[in-house]
Amino acid sequence: MTSVQRPTDELVQSLVSGLRPVPRAAVALRLALGATAGAAISVVLLISIVGMRPDLGVVVNSVRFWSKASYMIVTAGISLLVAARLARPGSSTNILWLLPIPLLIYLPAATFELVRTTPADRMALVLGHGWQLCTWLVLALSIPIYAGLWWAFQSFAPTRMEATGAVTGLCASAIAGVIYCLHCPTDTAVFALVWYTLAFAVAAIVGRRFGPRLLHW
């Protein structure tokens, strides 16, 4: 028994002797690098396909624009944080409770808009301008970002594959939503809550479905 155990212990020791602890920020930094590279491509695609909104220089000074953009930014930041946690082997899914926070924070703004609007005008508030393309363009712009996140995950070892895939899809679409704000002509909270959130949900569902195949290690 001792003669068998000794070679085994020596083998294990030789396998781990060259390992060095990974810096705690390494995962987040690699994810950020992949997301940034993908986002740069998405910006180029946005400019090539639909261009920037002509009044961008004016609306960047408005509360509504930044309220909408903040919804995307906070969603992207939280989902990136959760993705970084899930990238580690044996990670818990308890952190998923953070994901609805941006939606819950933004919901009162949309409710306030609906209350202030007459019933006859509420549908116009929901549809805004460009509702037909909003969700689809956000999803299209999320593809290069998802590719960047996929590149990052090649160095990780996630074990909660479905949850990781869903969060990665959500993160990619939220970053794409930030980029699409540079073109989107409608800044109402109701519009953003409906069409952008729809893109987030679709991306998360697709990520959950195909993530285990793409993010495996």
Score class of each variant (00 low, 15 high):
His216Glu: 14
Ala124Val: 09
Leu15Trp: 04
Ile105Phe: 14
Ala152Lys: 03
Ile175Trp: 15
His183Asp: 05
Arg24Leu: 13
Asp187His: 15
Val74Ala: 15
Ser91Phe: 02
Leu45Lys: 06
His216Gly: 09
Gln13Trp: 05
Ser173Asp: 08
Val44Asn: 02
Leu137His: 14
Arg208Val: 02
Leu86Ala: 05
Ile143Asn: 06
Ser67Gly: 14
Ala192Asn: 13
Ile145Met: 04
Ile143Gly: 03
Cys171Lys: 04
Arg208Thr: 02
Tyr106Gly: 05
Thr111His: 13
Ala87Ile: 05
Val167Gln: 00
Thr186Met: 04
Thr117Asp: 10
Phe156Asp: 02
Val12Ser: 02
Ser3Cys: 05
Arg85Met: 11
Arg160Glu: 14
Tyr196Ser: 13
Ile145Tyr: 01
Ser14Gly: 01
Ala157Tyr: 07
Val126Lys: 10
Ser67Cys: 12
Gly34Lys: 00
Met1Pro: 10
Glu162Val: 11
Thr2Ile: 12
Ile47Asn: 12
Ser79Val: 07
Phe210Thr: 10
Ile95Asp: 03
Gly38Thr: 04
Leu137Met: 14
Tyr180Gly: 04
Leu214Met: 12
Gly130Asn: 05
Ser91Ile: 04
Val178Glu: 12
Thr186Phe: 09
Asp121Met: 12
Ala83Ile: 06
Val74Phe: 14
Leu149Cys: 05
Ala87Thr: 02
Ile78Leu: 15
Leu114Trp: 10
Gly34Glu: 02
Tyr146Ala: 13
Trp150Val: 01
Leu125Ser: 05
Leu170Gly: 08
Arg209Asp: 00
Pro212Phe: 03
Arg64Asn: 12
Leu214Lys: 08
Phe210Trp: 14
Thr197Arg: 08
Gln13Asn: 13
Ala37Asp: 01
Ser62Pro: 04
His129Pro: 07
Asn61Val: 09
Cys171Glu: 04
Leu114Arg: 07
Arg6Ala: 15
Tyr146Arg: 07
Ser91Asp: 00
Glu10His: 09
Ala84Cys: 00
